[in-house]
């Protein structure tokens, strides 16, 4: 973490401090709507970072991360709705179950040598399989969805994640901040270097004594556990879960766009990506509404075009390009 700071030059440090302060003070001036957008951005920073660890650093392209969001959310919400177990406690089984799924998928893939596109399809298959399964789990609402009831009396119970917009904003801020710090630390750790070696060349990594299977398992475990925490947040923030919405492949895609657009395998890429994409989406909704184009498709089309343009022009992501342009990173000598 200290080295993260040391790697930035004076200008980068100033920008970082100003940005963090601005985020902390935002609720003073922000409207409720703006705060909800910022919360969404921070949520995507968090889950994007979790995925970035696995893909950006360890090079394993999971296209089914919605699975872990959904599992985390459903487990915690189910425990709360049925047994009154609060999310601070419920997050533990939520994480454990999601990580167990992650471990199983990882074990299958890495033991049996399922790589590249095949690995991606395996992750999709598991997410879709689970989605259809959840459509048929009665106690969790099935296809009709699971709802966390709104109770006036519990509104201030922040320890049960029952709070208002302001509470969730700061919670998201803490989660996102922690994810960034964790990534920065991992990126410079021994494990992080093993991941990068595997990402770059698995055979060469093995020849340098790296236990590839173990390192990959750690990646999938950490990533799925982290993502599940995001799922708990999601469930208690929105108070409803539908299999068709949380496990959908489009959810997995939504979650990975930020890191890809921002810059894979970088600490700040997922942050920049979320801050670019989410407001862009909101802006598009506003503009199309104003223009009387009341079609939800118009926004998405523009989104699709932006994606194509970004991946065509800056395939490495916006952050590496931006930080070079603005001179935010120290040139190591």
């Amino acid at each position: 973490m200290i080295s993260l700071w040391r790697d930035m030059n004076r200008r980068g440090q100033v920008v970082l401090v100003v940005a963090v302060l601005a985020m902390l003070l935002a609720p003073v001036v922000a409207t409720r709507y703006l705060l909800s957008v910022l919360t969404l951005i921070l949520y995507f920073v968090y889950v994007g970072q979790a995925w970035n660890l696995m893909m950006g650093y360890a090079g394993q392209l999971s296209l089914g991360h919605a699975l872990y969001v959904g599992l985390g959310g459903y487990v915690a919400a189910g425990l709360w709705v049925h047994f009154g177990i609060g999310p601070w406690l419920g997050v533990i089984p939520a994480v454990a179950i999601a990580a167990a799924f992650g471990a199983f998928i990882g074990w299958l893939a890495f033991r049996f040598g399922i790589e590249g596109v095949y690995f991606s399809l395996l992750t999709i298959a598991f997410a879709e399989f689970t989605r259809i399964g959840f459509d048929h789990i009665g106690p969790l609402g099935g296809a009709g969805g699971l709802f966390i009831p709104y109770q006036e009396s519990r509104l201030g119970e922040w320890w049960n994640l029952r709070g208002g917009q302001l509470f969730f904003y700061y919670l998201a801020f803490v989660l996102a901040g922690a994810a960034v710090l964790l990534t920065a630390w991992l990126a410079r750790s021994r494990l992080g270097h093993q991941w990068m070696a595997i990402r770059e060349d698995e055979t060469a990594a093995r020849a340098l004594g790296i236990d590839v299977f173990r390192a990959k398992m750690k990646a999938v475990l950490i990533s799925s556990a982290m993502t599940a925490v995001g799922g708990v947040f999601y469930a208690f923030y929105y108070n409803n879960l539908f299999p068709a919405q949380v496990f959908e492949m489009s959810r997995s895609i939504e979650l990975i766009l930020g890191p890809i657009v921002g810059g894979l395998g970088t600490v700040f890429g997922p942050v920049i990506g979320a801050f670019v994409l989410t407001p862009l989406g909101e802006l598009l909704i506003a503009v199309t509404d104003k223009a009387g184009l009341n079609a939800p498709g118009a926004k998405a089309i523009f989104f699709g075009l932006v994606l194509m343009i970004i991946i065509y022009l800056v395939p490495g992501g916006v952050w590496p390009w931006l930080s070079r342009r603005l001179g935010l990173v120290r040139r190591r000598s």
Binding site: L257, G297, G304, L305, L307, I311, Y312
Partner: peptide, 28 residues
Amino acid sequence: NAFVGRPDYQQFILLVGVAIVLVNGLLI
């Protein structure tokens, strides 16, 4: 053609972009 031989995830993003445009064009 510019994406042949590029990493999987880049091809994936490009074609997801194409897919999003197609689906939503139909939707409109």
